[in-house]
Design a protein around this nucleic acid. Structure first.
Length: 314
RNA sequence: GGUCGAGUAGCUCAGUUGGCAGAGCACACGCCUGAAAAGCGUGGGGUCCGGGGAUCGACGCCCCGCUCGACCA
């Protein structure tokens, strides 16, 4: 009923680690498996090449969830993702299937597997706070947060505008300390979901990223971005890697070669951030991949998917 | 062949009337609860092209080379 009897395995890892193909291979071997993408950018329709969405044939062969949820000109955030996830799990349950999560977005992944309690939104308060930040600076607001919620204040840099504003917004809006919403991301509760992480030597992964970015260009990423630019991209969608940099080039800010090089560098940095995020979670079981992710990792995923249920609560 | 300019961190470049060598980016490490492919923080890095000279002291001034660029022949 919590969904944990049908969601038992997640594949995580950095971009270009091959987690999608590993998950696809595993899904084909275990009947009834449906894939759930845990990816903050694949939720946008029409952003296909740059987000490395699964192919049409893969999507025809195995049911995929949480892809193409909204148009690229609308904002999307973790709370909506959480809601969509619950719907997807209910859907899979109704079919008596089993879900295999494939995740690259750390926060979204935690939000669903640990069912984070997300505070609400108070747009009026937020916009007032943003005005204040603009003329007084984030540290001034951080000083107020120290009064209202010292725990939350101690968890962030006084110069981090977004986090300071968000924490104050929640404190003032909800009347509760921001830090009272759940135990925090550094708590890793026991979970029935087996998490399998794909890990590569960093320099090898860097090469894969470079190849992948150039491949995306060959596939027509620039044209995709041009078409999206005409329609307009939402604030959240336009920060996707590959899109942001090519938009800058289309605006005349840099040459195409410079933009592509930036995509490579920024993607590499992103991959490192992902590795660190997931690497901190002691529940992840890592598989070191040398060159063939499907061959080296999918057997473990298949085994986890088809293992007998161990939870007595089911 | 001649003239001028350049040579400083992995890269692009600041810099000092001669007094402990800097920035941005990259890289490493850390943080993260409604923008998360976002955002924030910390750190390691140097034969200042090479050699000689003058000076208490040279990355800086003088001399000799080397490399690159532009221009003139």
């Amino acid at each position: 009923m919590s969904g944990h009897d049908i969601v038992r395995v997640a594949v995580v890892g950095p971009t270009a680690s091959g987690k999608s193909s590993v998950a696809m291979a595993a899904a084909l071997q275990v009947a009834g498996t449906e894939l759930v993408s845990v990816d903050s950018m694949q939720v946008y329709r029409s952003m296909d090449i740059g987000t490395a969405k699964p192919s049409a044939s893969d999507r025809a062969a195995v049911r995929h969830h949480l892809i193409d949820l909204v148009d690229p000109d609308v904002d999307f955030a973790v709370a909506e993702f959480q809601r969509a996830y619950r719907d997807a799990v209910a859907d899979i349950a109704a079919r008596n299937g089993r879900a295999l999560l494939v995740g690259g977005t750390g926060l979204y992944h935690r939000a669903v597997i640990d069912d984070l309690e997300l505070p609400g939104e108070w747009p009026d308060i937020r916009s007032r706070l943003l005005d204040e930040v603009a003329d007084r600076g984030a540290p001034a607001l951080h000083a107020r947060l120290v009064e209202l919620d010292p725990v939350a204040a101690s968890r962030m840099e006084p110069t981090n505008e977004r986090r300071v504003v968000r924490a104050l917004e929640v404190c003032e809006g909800s009347g509760r300390p921001f830090s009272s919403f759940g135990p925090g991301l550094d708590a890793y509760p026991v979970s029935p979901i087996v998490q399998i992480g794909l890990r590569w030597d960093r320099s090898v992964l860097a090469e894969r990223i470079e190849i992948r970015v150039h491949h995306m260009m060959d596939e027509g990423l620039l044209g995709e971005v041009e078409a999206l630019a005409r329609r307009g991209l939402s604030r959240t969608a336009r920060q996707a890697l590959g899109y942001k940099e090519l938009l800058a080039h289309l605006d005349g800010e840099c040459s195409l070669d410079e933009a592509v090089e930036q995509v490579v560098v920024r993607t590499r940095q992103f991959a490192v951030r992902q590795l660190r995020w997931f690497g901190r979670d002691p529940r992840v079981q890592w598989i070191d991949v040398a060159d063939d992710p499907v061959g080296e990792a999918s057997p473990a995923v298949v085994a986890a998917l088809s293992a007998p249920r161990s939870d007595a609560s089911a």
